[in-house]
Design a binder for these strands. Structure first.
Lengths: 245, 245
DNA sequence: CGAGCAGTTGATTTTTATCAAGTAGCGTGG
DNA sequence: CCACGCTACTTGATAAAAATCAACTGCTCG
């Protein structure tokens, strides 16, 4: 069940402090680039919702009645083959928008990884608002541009990088996406399981585990716990991510 | 050298007769959904350009001074790793738009495969026009939505499908993208080389060749020439593309 | 006619997946 | 509080898919 809080929608979550790895631009929430008038209109039609781990926000093939702006936690977005093979196309964190790629129906499934909250909009009302607000439309287009660039980088990773290069790229990218990354320099939070990392990188759980172990013994990373590690030699990781090692 | 023709820009190339494999929606040109007023404005700032095979439209890292609407031929869009590994992120055909994902700089290289023509816009002028035209902005957002959906499907292909499944998916998708597909039922035009197919599907030339040979001996496809084939059993190909065989 | 390129086919190697057997951490219930 | 069992993760042995290396074919274009 989706819990609907009274107020406020809080869709204006920003994360302007993070620079984007993919395009060099500063990351931003869809709502982050709006004026107060647009924000007020958005809040009027938004509902704050909460999701337990594993709970779906959207399901592939279902009508896309709602769109979401994630306000806390983390979400996995994936597509399935009929025999159960899963490709996670992205992880979403606070400030990310869910549903940009959706028309009438969702083309992916989205589920909370941790306890998460999101700002929910009915799509019809949202479309009407977007229709009336050029600034909102522009913000959406910018966000779509950003997602397209990230998707192209991920295609390069999935099509042409080795297992080591994929892990290195992932560990470098993740903190720039997750606004909740630990503050200490080089620390990375891993809210997702090894299996989710594997399904995001086109590998198996075992390969992810082996590569992480190898990186650990090489002294490139240090595992602080199962769900947190620190980058000990980020420059070496960067070289590895580009295939220079 | 870029040949600039006198007139007309012809950016209104449509391909509304093709249904989109990815999202079920009917494919369309960016300009295809515009009214006469917008079309006239677009044409006013557009230049028709021609490209010989191999000639670049855009280069990764270069300032994105120009955006393009492809009007004929075909284009490969790719990213490179430093050691030369290449991932082709997409093929563009008449009606496709190049540069949606680009901000100040191009994040990919784009080169003509065949002799091709495109409608070229200076980005600054284009942005100004888009700024003034909600309908154009909406068309761009729809196009971005469509490209995002395609990118997610390609991630599933690259991360989780076998070589056979990749080729089957490719052969089924291609005709829906290429408005120049031969009219006869089940015929597919392959303007790109085996190497380009390999770099699009995350495989090697040899694997692409072997799988095509296998499909041929299985009677699923028939090679009419190096650059054209026919789908003899599309339903079997479809099952194969989804991993059901 | 011959050079060169694209493609095919075969032999072998490599990477990563698969199969299998542990280990560690965590929450629950006795 | 500890034991149990579950799940996630790790590690090792083996297998499979695709890459690599290599040779050859056939076509196109000077």
């Amino acid at each position: 069940m989706i819990e609907i809080k009274s107020l406020p929608a809080g869709c204006a979550a920003r994360r302007s402090e993070t620079a984007c790895e993919t395009c060099g631009a500063r990351a931003f929430s869809v709502c982050g680039s709006l004026g107060p008038a647009d924000l007020a209109k958005l809040d009027a039609l938004a509902e704050a919702t909460a999701f337990a781990p594993g709970q779906p926000l959207a399901h592939e093939g279902d009508p896309a009645d709602y769109l979401f702006n994630i306000t806390s936690g983390s979400v996995r977005v994936y597509k399935l083959l009929s025999d159960g093979r899963r490709q996670i196309t992205g992880f979403l964190f606070a400030g990310d928008f869910l549903g940009l790629a959706s028309g009438d129906r969702h083309l992916f499934t989205a589920e909370a990884i941790e306890p998460s909250t999101a700002c929910r909009f009915r799509r019809t009302a949202y479309q009407a608002l977007v229709h009336d607000s050029p600034s909102l439309e522009r913000a959406l287009l910018d966000r779509a541009r950003h997602e397209l660039a990230a998707a192209q980088s991920q295609m390069l990773l999935l099509g042409r990088k080795t297992a080591h290069e994929r892990l290195a790229s992932f560990l470098l990218d993740l903190p720039s996406q997750d606004p909740l990354r630990p503050n200490a320099e080089g620390r990375v939070r891993l809210p997702m399981t090894r299996g989710e990392i594997a399904d995001y990188l086109g590998l198996t759980i075992e390969t992810v585990s082996r590569v992480l172990t190898k990186l650990k013994t090489q002294g490139v990373i240090r595992l602080l716990s199962l769900n947190e590690l620190s980058l000990e030699r980020p420059e070496q990781l960067r070289a590895m991510a580009e295939g220079e090692i």
